[in-house]
């Protein structure tokens, strides 16, 4: 029964191939568990600034897929009262604890992120916050240096796009567009 041997051989090769592919996939993925995202709201009356240093994010440099995941409650404000109002009255962190982004780098084939260098990229995908998902397209920079990827981006978000209501009474204190900054250092994903 020689045929059987051939089939078994194909079977094992396919298993080995699949295992190989998984290690290959891991080589393509870069992650960060403590990425930094912060935002500003600036009006003549009040400057509001909050930082989140616990952003989890992953990037696949082959496919260009990129995802972010953060807890709204992890945004830290200078004033405790602001933080309370942010969570309680604006983004409702109890009901919508997370903000996520899932998307991809546009024209990933034009970039070789295995090589050191600075690349200006465009990222598009779904930003989900306060129970609302919006398609967004923003630019950012990726700097590849010695097996690390430094990602930065700066873009504007409109609270009203995500059904975040700002009452008339405080409209002078909260900007209608919030400046969001992203600063991530990705490292090669090593499976535990």
């Amino acid at each position: 029964m020689k045929n059987h041997h051939i089939i078994y051989a194909i079977f094992f090769i396919s298993i080995i191939l699949s295992a190989n592919q998984q290690t290959a996939t891991a080589q393509e993925k870069y992650v960060s568990k403590n990425g930094h995202i912060w935002f500003y709201s600036q009006t003549p009356l009040e400057t509001i600034e909050a930082h989140n240093n616990q952003v989890a994010t992953i990037i696949n440099i082959k496919t260009g897929a990129i995802a972010f995941d953060l807890l709204m409650k992890s945004f830290k404000f200078k004033k405790a009262l602001m933080e309370e109002h942010f969570n309680e009255n604006y983004v409702h962190s109890e009901t919508y604890p997370k903000c996520t982004f899932s998307g991809k780098i546009v024209d990933i084939n034009n970039f070789n992120l295995t090589k050191n260098g600075k690349y200006k990229v465009e990222v598009e995908g779904d930003l989900t916050m306060h129970g609302v998902t919006k398609k967004i397209k923003q630019t950012g920079t990726l700097e590849v240096k010695d097996d690390k990827i430094y990602a930065t981006s700066k873009f504007d978000v409109k609270p009203e796009d995500y059904n975040i209501e700002i009452p008339k009474l405080v409209r002078d204190k909260i900007a209608s567009t919030i400046e969001v900054n992203v600063d991530i250092v990705y490292q090669l994903f090593e499976k535990r």
Binding site: I58, N60, A65, A67, S102, F189
Partner: peptide
Amino acid sequence: DENLLDELDSISE
């Protein structure tokens, strides 16, 4: 179609 968000759940602290 890799779902990176699911993968994030497994790696986030």
